[in-house]
Amino acid sequence: MAETIISSGLIIDGNLQSDGSLRLEGRIEGCVDSNSSIEIGPGAHITSDVAGKRVALAGSVAGNVDARERVDLLAGARLTGDVRAPRFTIADGANFRGKVDMEVNRGD
């Protein structure tokens, strides 16, 4: 279970930063930054960049997604922005518009 859960009714007008894992179902009008995994649920809406260790996206993101390990676009996901991650999957039914950079060399 994620350390931080933002459920569907909640709106954050600003940035969210955490060392622990995040599960986002609500709306975030700002950046999301975590040193752990980020799960973005089907109802979630994020209007800025997302950075984490692993990012699983089923909701909507308008911004760049940056992950140290991997990014997964699940069915129903909607991403407008660039992806930077060593591993990247796009499921059937995901909507993606942007560039991908998998040549990520970082010391971790």
Binding site: E3, G9, D13, G14, N15, Q17, G20, E25, I40, L74
Partner: peptide, 29 residues
Amino acid sequence: MAIERPAKMSSVLGATAVVIGNIRGEGDL
């Protein structure tokens, strides 16, 4: 790697989490 909706409504801002900005909306937090 499926994401299912959390069973309970409540939101939790974890111990290491920092929000710089306002929080609004509905639901327990």
